[in-house]
Design a protein around this nucleic acid. Structure first.
Lengths: 235, 235
DNA sequence: ACCGTTACAGACCGGATGGTATGTATAGTA
DNA sequence: TACTATACATACCATCCGGTCTGTAACGGT
């Protein structure tokens, strides 16, 4: 049986098929496998041989797509971890309505959907931040850029909330945004050390109550706002 | 010139003196050098040769005092990092008076005394927690035990504050204590990634204002407490 | 059909690393 | 003083790891 090249090009052939070559698919395999290994062992201890074995590829493929191990790591941050994180924390979602309530919903959603794997391995971005920041400037910048995107989005939300009277105006939105992200990452970090999903949930819960403290105070002799009064939640 | 063994035993001889042997001093040198190298590069990437070179010792000394690299790491956590951290965060200090104000003072003291090195390298305990928790159970337990000591002390403070009417009684002291420590570590982590002492200070500042929100609410028609009313601080 | 380029496979290499084996001087003890 | 255990120093080893080099089959253009 003879297959024309044109037909092959349009086929979504299986990964076990060695007869055709798809550079972008190969690259994706490398990135996925590298992310896994880095997530598990850290970047420095991540073994290229392990990555290649899991990807079903060899050194030739790796060093065709990336000049060295570090560049593979940068690509993992930019093309895998970044999207992973921003998606998971709702940064990419449309932002409307009460930002504090929206943030609390995201926290609750994440607290509810925590996996054992996530508790044990922590946040992949934070892992890389702590390991690589002092050792590699490009790594640090790539990681910090993602954190900036995240905190920037939260800050924007808070500022919008302030403009709409949903957030106290006497708070510095950017400082608070940085604190919120720091508290989230810290909560994951402590929970990872304790190997406790319960600790993670309780910390995120306290963070949620902190968000309530950012709501405007109810003035006595004043018209009630369109939003219901902030419920006092047990911290 | 002849020295008696007794005299030698009671002398604090200099580190350059090779004629006498002091096992505990040697062990301390190993621990100090190991802490430095681990703090800079992480445990897995810490080189024993580098540690020994900095300590002015050799493999023989190392493997006489420790069975393997991992055990050296455990000892560093238990005998160096733990004390370092508990001292730096005032866990070992006598605990009296208003716990929230005391905590805020510690935060301010740490925020004011931050060094460039600390911003770049972060918290040594948190570094080890993030790197080693998934890889080595003994490491994880040693680190988690120190975090527990810390959060436990904070929780005790908060509970005492609650008993004395200085802290709101509707908060879960242990959950809040965990959150506080998590927020501190997260703040150091984010600042390390951003390489920004300013970010660290602002995050700790927001944390300080969060502590204010834990103070009891002032009832209108009631006698004022002996402590001054909580000042509303700009978050 | 031919040919240059692309996309890998696979063998190989130098260096670094954790760990071991052995040697040796010192300290304690009888 | 003689002996034994301690406290190291030094040379050495096996392994792993990042990276290179070469070979080769598939693809695209002419």
């Amino acid at each position: 049986m003879v297959w024309s090249g044109l037909l092959w090009k349009n086929m979504a052939n299986s990964s076990t098929d060695r007869r055709s070559r798809q550079p972008d698919v190969t690259r994706d395999k490398l990135l996925k496998a590298a992310f896994e290994e880095i997530y598990r062992r850290g970047f420095q201890s991540a073994s290229l041989d392990t990555i290649l074995a899991q990807a079903g590829l060899t050194k030739g493929a790796l060093y065709h797509h990336f000049p060295d191990k570090a560049s593979l790591g940068y690509a993992v941050v930019d093309e895998v971890v970044r999207g992973f994180l921003l998606e998971r924390w709702g940064v990419l979602e449309p932002r409307t309505g009460d930002p504090l309530t929206a943030l609390q919903r995201v926290l609750q959603r994440r607290a509810a959907g925590i996996t054992t794997r996530e508790v044990e391995l922590g946040c992949p971005l934070n892992n890389l931040a702590q390991e690589m920041s002092p050792l590699d400037q490009r790594f640090r910048r790539a990681v910090a850029a993602t954190f900036d995107t995240w905190t920037g989005a939260v800050a924007k939300d808070l500022e919008r909330g302030q403009a709409e009277g949903l957030v106290r105006r006497d708070v510095d939105a950017r400082k608070v945004a940085g604190f919120i992200v720091a508290a989230i990452e810290g909560s994951f970090g402590l929970a990872k050390s304790a190997r406790s999903a319960a600790m993670l949930r309780s910390s995120l819960e306290v963070l949620g109550s902190f968000l309530d403290s950012l709501r405007p105070v109810q003035r006595k002799s004043q018209k009630a706002p369109d939003k219901p009064a902030p419920r006092k939640r047990r911290v």
